[in-house]
């Protein structure tokens, strides 16, 4: 706050306001003393695990059921650290007389974390949600070759992937949930309209024939109840 403020009449802009000699020294002492009374910021990592954010980029997990071997991740990877091998299998036709289908089967999926630069492009680009960030970070090795994690290890990492963080209270609904809700609402409205129309029709029918048989209304209530 040494800069003279324009609304302060006593200080000229060319000259800094005169202060008591030694006030700067005292200010310095106050700063260090205040820091001493505060909590220190040192992270005691091996003793105390760090409190990581939910989107921490620790390691990449593979949910291999979702993988279709489309190779997008391997091709988008800037430093080519994803290795994918696969072969084609022919699946017999689902219905008799149908055509045979071919399907990609994953043989090898490995990420070399010695090369990986944790850009996350593979995760962004995966169209089938097979790759995820996990906050785990303690996988240092003494041999660099061990840093190539094969599919079993990548699947292990998958179980450490945290749930996605909850949305903000005022956030927009996720697109897929919104679409599902819209469809469900539409269906419910349709059913309600149908049920109403049916009930009206029955009420009309009852009004027209008041001397009906005794067991008919019973059956009607049962039907409405189900």
């Amino acid at each position: 706050m040494s800069r003279p403020s324009p609304d302060h009449p006593s200080t000229t802009p060319s000259k800094r306001p005169r202060s008591i000699p030694g006030s700067g020294l005292a200010k310095g002492l106050a700063v260090t003393l205040r820091t001493m009374t505060r909590r220190s910021v040192t992270a005691q990592y091996p003793d105390v695990q760090p409190d990581l954010a939910p989107r921490t980029r620790g390691v990449i997990g593979l949910f291999e059921e979702n993988c279709t071997v489309c190779m997008l991740c391997a091709r988008e990877c800037p430093d080519w650290c994803i290795y994918i091998d696969s072969h084609k299998e022919t699946v017999p036709p689902a219905a008799p007389g149908g055509r045979e289908r071919s399907r990609n089967v994953l043989d090898r999926f490995a990420i070399d974390f010695a090369l990986c630069m944790y850009c996350g492009i593979c995760i962004e680009v995966c169209p089938f949600d097979a790759l995820f960030w996990s906050p785990e970070f303690e996988y240092a090795e003494t041999d660099i070759r061990e840093l190539t994690h094969e599919r079993d290890k990548l699947r292990e990492w998958m179980w450490t992937v945290p749930e996605p963080p909850a949305l903000d209270p005022a956030a927009e609904e996720p697109k897929e949930i919104a679409a599902a809700r819209k469809a469900a609402d539409k269906l419910a409205a349709q059913q309600a309209a149908e049920a109403e129309a049916e009930a009206e029709a029955e009420a009309e029918a009852e009004a027209e024939a008041p001397a009906g048989t005794q067991d008919t209304p019973d059956r009607d209530t049962k039907e409405e109840g189900t």
């Binding site: 260090t32 003393l33 820091t35 001493m36 505060r38 220190s40 910021v41 040192t42 005691q44």
Partner: peptide, 13 residues
């Protein structure tokens, strides 16, 4: 210890 805490550290632990 004092120097560490004045600098927001913990010092020897």
């Amino acid at each position: 210890k004092v120097m560490a805490h004045m600098q927001g550290r913990l010092g020897p632990m």
